[in-house]
Design a protein around this nucleic acid. Structure first.
Lengths: 243, 243
DNA sequence: GGGCGTCATTGAGAAGTATCAATCCAGCAT
DNA sequence: ATGCTGGATTGATACTTCTCAATGACGCCC
């Protein structure tokens, strides 16, 4: 059950340009989707885009960097690290979600440590900018609500699916989640390492490994190419329900 | 691990009056805390207050009653019920929180079943009223965000504390949560029944019973009066950390 | 190619939990 | 008081999972 994720403090982000939200080709996904283009003329502080390599720490819990991050590409894990170093992954987030929203409600620091799972592209938005835009644009406030509601739904799903049943059932659920939310264009998803999976569902690394190895043997889970895997959804759903 | 909470469909709520939010003595806690008293003149649909006996169902998942509920008194459990009837308690909420907020983001039904744990007093607010007030009062939208953020924090705490460690550690955490969030004026809290506790942390009823009985024997947990209990916080924290 | 490090897999025994069944207990109605 | 009833407790056993330890697989660097 003990899992102490090795955290590499290589926050070597690459600056990939100044964001031009009004021209953003995925804006409909993003935080500012409902704002009129005119709104961006009011923005004083710049919004920059960055690229982070896998494993890099976007921010640490309890620090206060005054930035909200809007994920454009890649997967981010939100991690809770106990005083004794044991860590637990609380949520896995992908493109279109924003992290660090707790700062908008007056939190005096981030509530989790955020770590890039694979390569992550994101927009770094100053809290002051959001607050300023919220003033004039109620749509933004409502979008923030919606993002929070989405994350709440995710958290609830996490509690129900990943916190109930045998190890076998939970791993099946986890693979289903990866398949549903993190499949890429090729219809396959990256299988997390065993340590991350263990930290998500709260079981031992070896147990996860046994289950995954078993799924592979049964051809319920198979390699697509490189790190990408595909799965037999029906079989996993059966397992997640009855074992 | 199987737990099928017996749900008594006795939705025999008692109407206890029409709400006068502008005069509400606990308004600072409630959904409309930041609104000027003048705002209530705009409200067309009435806001009613109700009292529910323990065990009654406030609403069921997937139904759509067009109401948000603001809890004034008592505890409410949000329950996820799987198709096979197994239920899991996702969250426990008390005074000052609002439930059913998912309807504001366009959900086409409640996301959980809400059940009164003890006697619950609440205000029943039409969705249309909130939407109407949100239009003119950004403060309300921000308060909704804050409530969602609070619930998200709770859910995260749930995942971390109640989904990690041995049964003994989890039960200790659960008692600590009850003590922290649900202690009443007398400094004691109501100990939930074993079935509810089991549904919260995802272990068998008998296991919960063994742990609680053990805590009682060790005088870590003791009866204050009637159903009310008090606990030795330090001892429980020790247990929750190392076992 | 060979050595090395990291992660995944597998095995075996210990520890923890679920399950089934019996018993206890308090509150309540008769 | 007596019996009833639902929940809580306890016991015994089978099963699951953790833990420690060994082995295997793979990429990487020299």
């Amino acid at each position: 059950m003990t899992s102490e994720l090795a955290i590499t403090f290589c926050t070597d982000a690459t600056w990939t340009g100044r964001a031009h939200c009004e021209k953003c080709h995925i804006r409909k996904l993003m935080l500012f989707s409902e704002l009129p283009t005119s709104a961006f003329e009011e923005v004083l502080q710049p919004i920059d885009q960055y690229m982070y390599p896998p494993g890099s720490v976007l921010y640490e819990a309890h620090t206060h960097k005054q930035f909200i991050y809007s994920i454009r590409r890649g997967m981010v894990k939100l991690v809770h690290i106990a005083p004794d170093g044991v860590s637990r992954i609380v949520r896995l987030l992908g493109p279109g979600t924003a992290i660090g929203l707790e700062l908008l409600d007056g939190a005096d620091g981030y509530h989790h440590t955020a770590i890039a799972v694979n390569q992550v592209d994101l927009c770094k938005i100053p809290v002051s900018t959001i607050k300023q835009l919220e003033d004039g644009h109620k749509e933004l406030c409502m979008h923030v609500s919606k993002l929070l509601q989405d994350q709440l739904d995710l958290a609830d799903q996490w509690i129900v699916a990943l916190g109930t049943g045998t190890a076998r059932q939970r791993v099946a659920q986890l693979v289903l989640v990866l398949d549903e939310f993190f499949s890429e264009d090729n219809g396959a998803f990256i299988l997390l390492n065993r340590e991350d999976m263990a930290a998500m569902i709260g079981i031992a690394v070896e147990t996860v490994s046994r289950m995954i190895a078993d799924f592979k043997r049964q051809k319920i889970l198979y390699r697509f190419k490189e790190n990408y895997y595909q799965c037999n959804t029906e079989a996993l759903q059966d397992i997640s329900r009855q074992g």
